[in-house]
Design a protein around this nucleic acid. Structure first.
Lengths: 241, 241
DNA sequence: CATTAACTGTGTCCGATGGACACTGTTCAT
DNA sequence: ATGAACAGTGTCCATCGGACACAGTTAATG
């Protein structure tokens, strides 16, 4: 059990390379991942196939299997390379500012590589960079009397929000590899059935720009966290535990 | 453009059936969707193929195409059937209680049908039931001086949180169709590289039960929304606009 | 009642996918 | 120099979604 998972771990966490006997590898994990990212950026994750990646590098499909155990691991490498390094911790800033910058940067990654949304669903092995992003959130919340699980939960909350915003703004974008006008389809649909969706019909005026939408949720979350932090800091001791 | 999208709209929103001339259809959209859901529940969304669905109904693969234009629309039907009806609005309850119940019920749907997480990524046409869920959030926030886009943003925020929690708790479940022990893999990984992830290593004690994790984020979000609502209600008029 | 047009389900075929496996050729350690 | 380890290739396979032509069935029409 977990053979394949361990293979992914070795790829993402293992040593960068080991000198060996035979001919020198003409390819590298980095080049393979970059080729995959190029395809995914241009045509979506669904267009990434072993054939296309190999073709882009002027190699045969099967040669890739010398470097990567399978497609899942290829995608894992692509994700790890595409999320990039997490933003550096700036101790001078407060936790609110740090988390705000974190969320904006993460949203930027999702915008640059929309397929990241598809590639990061479901149980998977996270690479060091992806874990680094998580680390930054938890670290920013250190020293505020939040328990370990609470800090983790806050990170999940923040990441989930950014994901949701990125997904929504991707659907609204008119380019996108798959199709388009889904938002243009949704508007008339809601208004045509305004009797069944009165609140929606009333609320759907202009679709909030995704910057606004990101900031709205972000400020609600941070306000909620701040309330918890100040409550813990020393304020009312009566609020049970 | 949008031909296929319109086909999906017709399937999800169109009339239930129209009496016609030829032989009576032996199948129905409902049965087909149910068969697909059965497979997805048991083996994951990836295991859902036209062949398997047809086989489960003792039909040929191609017969399904008489009912459904393609696999994307099949999945759309499955989603619409699996999310189920949104919780009824209980006017007696406050918005906090309504949204809490909403989030818990949605999380329940994701738990019952983990593949919903995979099926609801990316731009797609939403069915009436899925839209109904959205409607309930927006309706619950009516009458609190929030703008239309703000209420929509709040819905996205809430839905994103539930998604995030569901995804995390799916990864932690030991059954799951694809693989397992990803969380069991993550723990040792973090602690082995505790130098690179000090905050994570400190915070990763016990993985918060998913009930706790859901409620944590939920309360932060609701606190944040409440702060905004009371601020709008009439309090400080000095907070610009 | 006979005809006909519409509709349903099936069989066959296709291109593309991920992957297994055996094979040739290259290179380094001995 | 020789042999083991390794890189890249070619061939093959099951499975996928889907196109298309066809035969069987049924209801509306005369």
């Amino acid at each position: 059990m977990g053979e394949e998972a361990n293979a992914a771990v070795r790829l993402l966490w293992g040593p960068p390379a080991k000198p060996s006997r035979g001919p020198k590898p003409a390819l590298s994990l980095g080049r393979i991942a970059a080729a995959g990212i190029g395809i995914a950026d241009a045509e979506g994750l669904g267009a990434v196939s072993m054939q296309k990646v190999a073709g882009l590098l002027d190699f045969t499909k099967m040669s890739l299997y010398r470097y990567v155990p399978g497609k899942a691991e290829l995608v894992a490498l692509m994700v790890e390379a595409a999320v990039g390094e997490p933003p550096a911790a700036v101790d001078a800033l407060g936790w609110r500012e740090q988390l705000t910058a974190w969320a904006r940067q993460l949203e930027g990654s999702f915008t640059r590589h929309p397929w990241l949304l598809d590639a990061t669903v479901g149980p998977r092995v996270m690479g060091p960079k992806e874990l680094g992003w998580l680390e930054r959130v938890v670290a920013a919340l250190d020293g505020h009397r939040l328990t370990g699980p609470e800090r983790m939960d806050a990170a999940v909350l923040l990441a989930g929000h950014v994901r949701g915003i990125a997904e929504q703004s991707r659907a609204a974008r008119p380019d996108s590899p798959p199709e388009a006008e889904f938002l243009a389809l949704l508007g008339p649909l809601v208004h045509r059935h305004a009797d069944r969706f009165p609140a929606l019909a009333a609320a759907m005026t202009a679709p909030d720009g995704h910057d606004r939408a990101l900031d709205f949720g972000l400020e609600r979350i941070l306000d909620g966290l701040e309330a918890l932090i100040t409550r813990r800091a020393g304020g009312a001791r009566g609020a049970g535990l």
